[in-house]
């Protein structure tokens, strides 16, 4: 049996480490401007955000009837409307250079910027 104080110290140390890791990962940036729209592991579209001249939007429909409206502007992309229950994807806002992707968990939709490693793999 560990003492309660030992548990508190162990868990507090873990919390501090995780807080540092969270700050690091959520502020991480990506060089690439190529956004990937992935539904259930299948790449639907690849959009080079630096070459978008005019704003446009398109709708992604999931096999079981879900719907996400994706808006694209020069240099950035977001989910502007969705019929998922939690609306997290809409509230995440614009994705322009963040390493953290937009995720609509109920619909299995992920919009992420391709990493440098991915870009290398594509050109090879």
């Amino acid at each position: 049996m560990l003492k309660t104080r030992t548990w508190i110290i162990l868990l507090a140390a873990a919390a501090i480490l995780l807080a540092a890791a969270t700050c690091y990962t959520l502020s991480a940036r990506r060089e690439s401007a190529v956004a990937q729209v992935v539904l259930d592991g299948v790449v639907l579209r690849e959009i080079d955000l630096s070459r978008v001249a005019e704003a446009y939007s398109f709708t992604v429909e999931t096999p079981d009837g879900g719907r996400n409206v994706v808006s694209v502007e020069p240099g950035r992309i977001r989910v502007s409307d969705a019929d998922c229950p939690d609306q997290t994807c809409v509230r995440q806002g614009w994705l322009s250079d963040q390493a953290s992707p937009i995720v609509c968990a109920p619909h299995g939709l992920v919009i992420s910027l391709k990493g440098a490693a991915d870009a290398d793999a594509a050109t090879r």
Partner: peptide, 20 residues
């Protein structure tokens, strides 16, 4: 496994912290 992309792993520390 389902999404077939490791991009979501970025959120792991934030998720674990919120989980605590």
């Amino acid at each position: 496994a389902v999404y077939g992309t490791a991009a979501v792993l970025v959120y792991l520390p934030a998720l674990l912290l919120a989980g605590m």
